[in-house]
Design a binder for these strands. Structure first.
Lengths: 225, 225
DNA sequence: CCGGGAGGAGGCGCATCCTCATCGTTTCGT
DNA sequence: ACGAAACGATGAGGATGCGCCTCCTCCCGG
């Protein structure tokens, strides 16, 4: 992991660098606030450890600038002052944690671990078939770049078909999945109706709903032509 | 946001519940360690605040069990002991932060905010969508330069919607997040009502709440027009 | 005692759903 | 090869569920 340390006290800085190096991290160390801000403009780190009192620019100011540019990198502040107001404002500007000097090294290490561990990306659940793209969480469907408005049943049906392209679903399967079993299900004709609407709305896409006469329907993606 | 509090001291518990309720969060409060562990087995929270000293089961033990089941929910430990060893081991078991009693309420609130924020991958307390700007710590909302007065529930609802623009939230989702599960929740009608009020108050903003019939609501930012 | 927030009741209007009826198409039997 | 029957596509229109809005009540804090 890449760690960026901004700390003007020599002893403390050296100790931290050495400590993290020993457990396998890469630490870039900067002593000047101004220079640190510049480095942060174009380098991405997994963790930033920031002293508040600095020559050039305060830690608060660096943090502020960092967040203003949209960075979400975890930041751990080091502060000598222990007043509640300072600590609160550090957290509110966007620090993820802070530590009051003097601190125990084991504690710094533990907190750093907690922050590094916490990095996790968010999985998007997109379902794609040909150039049809279904965003399940937004209940939105796109064909290429074009947004297509689908109703609830339409999306549900498309979702089922697109989840297993090539697989043939009987009308009964589809009815069962779109409506519950218990419910008084509508006629097969309803399925045909929705298939029709979907075909119309998805016209021109690089995938289509193919009728398998006597069996049901299937999604078939294909190249442009 | 949904918060789970495990704390056996009556005064402290009541104070925390009330405090967070005032700023629009839902707090479920449990005094017994054993019971808390059971609740956590099948309920998901945005934040868990955990006292170390508890009847039934210690906070450490609850945390351990929680992490063993794969939960990544943010956990804030409350401890009377301030020895470094304890604090370090709390963090290593998987706590995200801790606070030593007695603590300042503003600090608890700030730390809780930081954890809740981080859970959603955001770095700042400012939440923006189109030209709507929500200051979570101040519970204030601006549209462009104009200050808009929103009630507690309104802010909470807007916060949820704006935190994931484009994502569709069902009325049930929204009810669950604004109120707890166990509480006697109001009807879906309430959600529609608040949506209506929000729309009125946010009129003219470069983002709007769109109805996705049959599914729920979503925030959609858009350019001026 | 008053003002504002919360939320229930119920009516209105429309998008969505589904049935019915009709028309086109494929697949057979002869 | 021809016609009939089964199957699927499509269009029209009625029913209704869903969402929105307008009162109105209750409750809490000042």
């Amino acid at each position: 992991m890449r760690i960026f340390l901004v700390e003007d006290t020599r002893d403390v800085g050296e100790a931290i660098v050495e400590h993290f190096a020993r457990i396998g991290h890469v630490v870039d160390w900067e002593t000047d606030g101004e220079a640190a801000a510049v480095t942060l403009d174009d380098t991405i780190y997994d963790l930033i450890i920031l002293d508040v009192m600095l020559p050039g620019q305060s830690g608060f100011s660096i943090l502020h600038r960092l967040r203003a540019t949209g960075s979400t990198a975890p930041v751990l502040m080091l502060t000598a002052r222990s007043e509640v107001e300072d600590r609160v404002s550090a957290l509110d500007i966007g620090a993820d944690d802070y530590l009051v000097k003097p601190f125990d090294f084991r504690e710094l290490e533990a907190r750093a671990r907690a922050l590094l561990r916490r990095r996790h990306g968010e999985a998007t659940d997109l379902l794609e078939c040909g150039d049809i793209c279904i965003d399940r969480s937004a209940r939105a469907v796109r064909v290429g770049q074009r947004e297509v408005h689908l109703t609830r049943r339409e999306v549900t049906l498309l979702e089922i078909l697109a989840s297993r392209p090539g697989r043939v679903f009987s009308k009964e399967d589809l009815l069962d999945q779109v409506f519950g079993f218990d419910e008084e299900a509508p006629s097969f004709n309803a399925v045909e109706l929705y298939i029709g609407r979907l075909r119309k709305k998805l016209h021109g896409a690089r995938a289509e709903i193919v009728t398998v006469r006597g069996f049901g329907y299937q999604m078939v993606p294909h190249g442009p032509s």
